[in-house]
Amino acid sequence: MIPVSIVIITKNEALLIGECLKSAALITDDIVVIDSGSTDGTLEIARQYGCRIYQENWEGYGANKNKGVALAHYDWILSIDGDEIADRRLIRSLHNLDFDDPRIVYDIKFRSYFGKKPIRFGEWGRNHHVRLFNRSQIKWAKAKVHETLLLPKGTIRKKTEGRLHHFSVQNIFECHNKAIYYARLSAAQYAKNGNKASFLKLYLSPSFVFVKNYILRLGFLDGWEGLVIAKMMFKNTRLKYYYLKQYEQGKFVRDENLPHHQHLFLNIDPFEK
């Protein structure tokens, strides 16, 4: 095993968490699970793999990941999600890394899936993220959505071999629901940051996102799934600025006790009929 702790945040990940942990157990002897109220058997599966499990209230993606980082045994942290699986090439690569310099972060390639189909083009086909870092130097920003690592000056970025395989959505309905869910979270974050929903963002940005993903980045080569993903990205962009406009006009109801800090808008989805 290598001196790396794996940190996973979970809520109802039973569908894939077993495969996720099966690969994680080949990397380290310290797997930390930060769970926010799973009811589907996720925790029972995690216990089978000897994970250290902590029940925490949901405070956002970045904040909950930081909780896991603080509880890890090792300073080197590999952050993965419950629907991500390390392939054997990545596992071998991790075992051959040098962990002497805490300034280094490792950028890992992703392979995203729509159901069981690997997506090779469009935005999803280009994914890579820094997921391996030393906690003495780096932590997660406390954003509730699209969490990012705070990389100090002097950080050295390196790449690994292999991939994390991300089973993003199982079907078109999950794709649709995620577009709405993340649009709500993004709108709340934008409102907090003082962003405004301009005419260009409301009416031109969604179309640009579709064209960039489906045409310029060859998303159409992924067939039907590529079209669905491009439409989902259009919808997500359109909705997050629509909801931001609702914030600006005061047309929303806020409830901090909702799971994952979702917000209830008076008009949940203007495209739903």
Rank of each mutant, 00 (worst) to 15 (best):
A86P: 12
D87E: 02
R88Y: 04
R89F: 02
R92A: 11
R92S: 13
S93W: 09
S93C: 13
S93A: 07
L94G: 05
H95F: 02
H95I: 07
D98F: 06
D98E: 09
F99Q: 00
F99K: 03
D100G: 08
D101K: 01
D101R: 04
D101C: 00
I104C: 11
I104E: 09
I104D: 10
V105C: 12
D107C: 15
D107Q: 15
K109E: 10
K109Q: 12
F110Y: 15
F110D: 04
S112K: 11
Y113T: 10
Y113W: 06
G115C: 08
G115S: 06
K116T: 11
K116L: 07
K117T: 14
K117V: 09
P118D: 00
P118S: 02
P118H: 00
I119A: 01
R120C: 01
R120T: 05
G122R: 01
E123M: 05
E123R: 13
E123C: 06
G125L: 01
G125C: 00
R126A: 06
H128L: 07
H129G: 11
H129T: 14
V130R: 11
L132M: 08
F133R: 10
N134L: 00
N134H: 10
R135A: 00
R135T: 02
R135N: 05
Q137L: 03
V145S: 02
H146W: 09
H146Y: 08
H146R: 12
E147V: 10
E147S: 12
L150K: 10
P152W: 10
K153E: 15
G154S: 13
T155A: 08
T155P: 14
T155C: 10
I156Y: 12
I156D: 13
R157M: 14
K158D: 12
K158T: 13
K159H: 15
K159R: 15
T160E: 09
E161V: 05
E161D: 14
E161C: 07
G162R: 09
R163V: 03
R163Y: 04
L164G: 06
H166D: 09
F167S: 02
S168E: 14
V169S: 03
V169L: 04
Q170G: 13
Q170M: 11
C175R: 06
C175S: 07
H176D: 10
N177Q: 14
K178S: 09
I180G: 02
Y182R: 14
Y182Q: 12
A183E: 05
A183Q: 06
R184K: 15
R184A: 00
L185H: 12
S186N: 13
A188W: 02
Q189C: 05
Y190R: 04
A191V: 03
A191P: 05
A191Q: 03
K192Y: 00
G194N: 00
G194M: 01
G194D: 05
K196T: 11
K196F: 05
A197N: 04
A197G: 07
S198Q: 09
F199H: 10
K201P: 08
L202E: 02
L202P: 03
Y203K: 06
Y203L: 04
Y203E: 05
L204A: 13
S205C: 06
S205N: 12
P206W: 03
